[in-house]
């Protein structure tokens, strides 16, 4: 394993009580890339992200971020470097959209300080990028699932971190908003050298946006590497157990997968 300034996992295992979730992971995630994590339901993808953010600590092995153990970071410091769009985004309290996006600035604002000009700029820019500015004064608990999810993405963008983690950040969104969010993320990677690590269920989406893919199965890495090399029918068959074909599609200008649905 080479020295890394991104994330480094060495011999990482994690179990929920007696049930192993991740076993003996060795992964290095370099800065400036768009990573896709793919794998069947329950293969440990969310747990993997939890280890990166320090929400969970490995039972064995070490997780480092910028050459320092994640556990050594104070949450506040880590929150200025790594943002997460979590899978669950239920909110029962009537905060406005803008208030929730502002929570992304929590780690940047002193405990009893008021938000400064930079905080306002980031919040406005995040809402603008995701296209939610026009309903900034609505209450989040009255939004639809998709709208809520976009608010949560904007909140993560407002954190303005070099690393962005997406846990199925577009699961409730239609194709238009899905593309909008992934386009924003891709631009951050290409133009600002930021790093995106996204758990993605839609393989075609992963093929279109990710520089590198990590296939996970039953808590282990089945394969990892540049999208063009690892994305092949044999791997999809091995990990998901379905028949598929991977071809370059001229219209989308990327590799796309077609499946044999039923026959």
């Amino acid at each position: 394993m080479t020295a890394t300034s991104g994330f480094g996992l060495t011999g990482v295992s994690f179990a929920y009580g007696e049930t192993p979730a991740l076993a003996d992971l060795d992964i290095s995630l370099q800065p400036g890339k768009f990573y896709g994590i793919v794998g069947p339901n329950g293969c440990g993808k969310t747990t993997f992200l939890d280890l990166l953010t320090g929400t969970k600590s490995p039972d064995q092995g070490s997780v480092t971020f910028m050459d320092r153990p994640v556990a050594e970071y104070r949450r506040r410091d880590l929150a200025r470097l790594v943002a997460l769009v979590p899978q669950d985004f239920a909110i029962d309290f009537a905060f406005t959209v803008q208030e929730v996006v502002f929570m992304g600035r929590h780690s940047h604002i002193g405990r009893f300080a008021s938000p400064g000009a930079e905080d306002w700029r980031q919040v406005d820019a995040a809402m603008e990028a995701i296209g939610i500015s026009h309903f900034r004064d609505r209450f989040v608990n009255e939004l639809s699932g998709g709208e809520k999810q976009r608010v949560v993405v904007a909140r993560a963008l407002a954190q303005h971190t070099p690393y962005l983690l997406f846990d199925e950040a577009t699961s409730s969104l239609d194709v238009q908003y899905t593309m909008q969010i992934f386009n924003v993320a891709k631009k951050l990677v290409q133009e600002e050298g930021r790093t995106v690590i996204a758990v993605i269920h839609n393989l075609n989406l992963a093929a279109a946006y990710c520089d590198e893919l990590i296939f996970m199965k039953k808590g282990k890495v089945a394969a990892g590497g540049p999208t063009n090399t690892v994305l092949e029918p044999a791997m999809i068959k091995k990990v998901f157990g379905v028949e598929s074909r991977v071809v370059f599609d001229e219209f989308s200008n990327t590799q796309q997968i077609s499946f044999r649905y039923w026959s």
Partner: peptide
């Protein structure tokens, strides 16, 4: 916002 969100917001 939930534990996971709170943790990663600092």
């Amino acid at each position: 916002l939930g534990t996971r969100a709170a943790d990663t917001l600092g």
